[in-house]
Nucleic acid binder design. Structure first.
Lengths: 149, 149
DNA sequence: GTTGATTAGTGCAATATCGTACTATATGGA
DNA sequence: TCCATATAGTACGATATTGCACTAATCAAC
């Protein structure tokens, strides 16, 4: 009979916290100097979800305050990785656009992570690893829903 | 045939990052004003691993710089949750001791988290959730080992 | 024992996160 | 149209994180 005590959730969250820390370090080791994980997350978001996103929408997607997003975008723009343009639909807001430099950096970073990622996949039984993803998604969705209540 | 492409690791780490963020918010909502997750982690560590730990050892356990540990301990000591004593074994270092106030606060915080944790356990099929823990431990251990190379 | 190298802790500076307050723009109802 | 309310972005201040440099204590080799 498995241990279904809520106490194991502490273990689960502790492991997740450590993995987050280690994977973030792995990513940031590949990023250009001065850029950190949130910068990369924005580039990736623009790439996957479409260029020209509005800052407030990204702040909501990442669940960070809009002031944090302002700061992150300022860093990316200073490095020439994104370009901020006026939003023709709404004079209060802007739109964020990947530059070729930003797109290239994002792709190179992913490429640099390849070997480490392949290491994980071969060392840990890829199928079993992929198998836990749905459960993590479920957990994330539950926490996300509970956040409002 | 499952998707064993290393790309799914991005998904995995992304979910883990979000869960870390949400669970940290859940914890910090229960902590006294001015205390955050690292403070709680120290109290918990002293409780589980034994009172009187040396700061540098905790810094290593949490894989944070020793300056960060100094800062965290200063906050806990200012609130009266821990007490710093000289280390009779080593004049360079100190030892960290839970106060009754610190122990009580840690226990109360865990108590306050109970309902939310039980929600998760009932909503998500506790057995399946517990089942992913070994795989997460494996992943953490692999990343930890790869950190040095 | 003396001395050079190592280690624990902390002050300081640079940057990150985020709450508050403010400005500019947009929206919705009279 | 006009005006009250809401929203997007940012400046600013408080606190967190962390690298560098320094001090004090320890350790190791002689």
């Amino acid at each position: 009979m498995p241990d279904a005590n809520p106490r194991v959730l502490f273990e689960l969250f502790k492991e997740i916290g450590i993995i987050e820390q280690l994977s973030r370090a792995l990513l940031e080791a590949q990023l250009p100097d001065g850029l950190i994980a949130p910068h990369f997350a924005v580039l990736n978001h623009l790439m996957m979800r479409g260029n020209g996103a509005v800052p407030i929408d990204m702040a909501r997607a990442f669940q960070v305050p809009k002031t944090s997003m302002t700061h992150t975008l300022k860093g990316l723009a200073a490095g020439g990785y994104v370009e901020l343009r006026h939003n023709p639909q709404d004079g209060r807001s802007k739109t964020v656009w990947l530059t070729p430099r930003g797109e290239a950096m994002r792709n190179e970073t992913i490429g640099k992570l390849g070997p480490a990622f392949e290491d994980v996949m071969t060392a840990l039984d890829a199928n079993a690893l992929v198998g836990i993803l749905p459960k993590l998604v479920e957990l994330r969705e539950h926490l996300d829903a509970a956040r409002d209540t």
